[in-house]
Design a binder for these strands. Structure first.
Lengths: 196, 196, 196, 196
DNA sequence: AATGAATGAGCCTTCATTCAT
DNA sequence: TATGAATGAAGGCTCATTCAT
């Protein structure tokens, strides 16, 4: 049961991500994965015994990436710059066609009704809110931002991001529309005297 | 040919809605519908020949309801009251367990990539934005609201609503969290002197 | 169980014939018949309780026609003229697209393995052979034909006709090819001195 | 991809031939084949994805055999002997119960209306006519046969053979009747002085 | 007599999963 | 470890047949 080849496992997860991003969750068959990986059916089962397991692996691999991003943000640059950086990452995520797991993820958790605790979606959302809250608090301290309710503001921002993500994957959205929307949220944070 | 029995058609659509709400779109089979309706396989095909067709029927039946709601809002009450009413409807929609088609709808339009024109999701979103924008403008005129960019503000509100909807359907969300969030958005509209 | 309406029964049989001729036997559904007749499903069952029964009815109705043709041939004209008339009928049968039941009939009797006695196909074939034999014998008596083995010759002619029928329905055949073939058979009957 | 196992493919084709011979074409389901082969449903689909495809494979496998026969006839024996050999093959074909594809083939090409070019039925018929014509011409040269119109004669013979085939498959026919019929045709070729 | 909505058996097809090699 | 042929459960769909009106 060992890890066989960690490298191959990684390889499968990466290929699988593009497949899930393209086709959602339920629509993906083991054959899709097998074809994308150019391995044998049996070979895939050596590493993952179901699409469920594979999808969860893709997801947790994903949050590794996200953690990395969050870590890089936790530097000591100006709060405004860091928030801008964070939003730039979010925008990239919203726009990426090839690796956008949003719908697949929603599909998966609609099917599986994860409890709050083991729901990575919730974990990710909460983490992001906390980060943004911290950034805003820092900004308020340095006078870059003006905000009476950093947590509310952070939450608001993240709900907007969720709305943008799902809109992008279904209705479709232009880059300009995203910029406009994120800009709108940012401006709410800037002190009035700087806004003009 | 006729539509057989309009009543039975309605009945199937209603049962189907609860099934789609529970399981999303792709995960629903004709058999699920048949079981939910307690009719025969052949009987279902008399009315709908695929889950696609059935889902679109559920959706358009749904938007009838929505139009009614929007119509009722277009009354002549105070802008603030009307916006509150609108948000109350949205909250009901976000919370409803039994008939929440959000994820199914997103799934459907991820699969089908409708063009902007025939995408009811877009139509609904745009309509809602326009309504909210109008309400805000009215509110600004009467002095109830303060807002320099009614369209931007309306769009922001609707993205938050989308974010709340999808969150409710996947991560899960409490009524309090929704209230808090909608309240936060509303407060952004209230003139400072009234806010304190 | 009376005959309900003999007229309607006839009507259904006629419509059904064109359907069987177009689509063969197994390929025909009750709906095809119902549509062609523009009656209700239940209505059809009042007259025929299966495609089998209906097809057999079409077939025996058909042999009525054939009997009529054969009767008309049994006149007192010259043998050569009568054989020519008979072959002209056969040619019409071979060529008719709309009402050619050949393949459907073969299909039916492949499925149902009728015993020799109740096989209308055999009855028709044998009757035709007997008629042709009689005509040839008459022709030999009057000196119009030369033939040492009228039965063999008649049988040969009818096998050729069968071959032409099935060829027409599957490979396809031109009118000229049929003429050439029938002519060839006829010439074998004409005394040498008349042939030049 | 590979053809999986050539051996199994052959095996399925052979079993399928007996099924088509027994039941015709349209009447055969994938389940019939699966049962005859004693393999799984999925297993069959690994090799053939429809009865159409399978039937065409049976047919082309069949024409391999036929080509062999034709090749063996193209020897240098006496024309009469070779024609006798050819007719013996035809008789075997007409009589065989287990593998007689005649009706199925006619059914298939009634359903599919192949164009003249890709219709193997036409190809086979034309080839056979050509072979017989050649044999008759050879026989005439050596004085074995007497015939003023070898092509017409060859065509006549082959239409008779077609008639016998379809008769055997539907009405049923005895070996004696076939012998008698083929004999009759052969005698038409023998010079008068030899006939007595 | 006539209608046509409803039923359910049966065939088609796909796909997760197993297993001999 | 790795392969891919084979399996069979499950869902899609059609159609002969019934039956309440």
């Amino acid at each position: 049961m060992g890890e066989k080849s960690v490298q191959k496992r990684k390889y499968i997860i990466e290929k699988a991500r593009t497949v899930f991003a393209e086709k959602g969750f339920k629509n993906v068959t083991m054959k899709d994965i097998v074809d994308a990986c150019e391995i044998s059916r049996g070979g895939l089962y050596l590493y993952f015994s179901s699409t469920d397991e594979l999808f969860l692996s893709v997801l947790s691999d994903d949050s590794d990436d996200e953690d990395t991003v969050l870590a890089s943000i936790s530097g000591s640059a100006a709060a405004g710059d860091m928030l801008a950086l964070f939003l730039k990452e979010q925008k990239k995520e919203i726009l990426r066609k090839k690796n956008n797991l949003t719908v697949a993820t929603y599909e998966y958790f609609t099917l599986h009704k994860a409890t709050a605790l083991d729901n990575p979606l919730k974990r990710q959302f909460d983490t992001a809110v906390k980060i943004v809250e911290k950034l805003i608090e820092n900004g308020v301290e340095t006078g870059e931002f003006y905000c009476e309710n950093p947590l509310g503001c952070a939450r608001n921002l993240m709900y907007v991001v969720e709305g943008l993500k799902i809109t992008a994957g279904t209705i479709g959205i232009t880059e300009e529309a995203i910029d406009k929307e994120l800009m709108y949220v940012m401006q709410g944070l800037v002190p009035d005297e700087l806004n003009n």
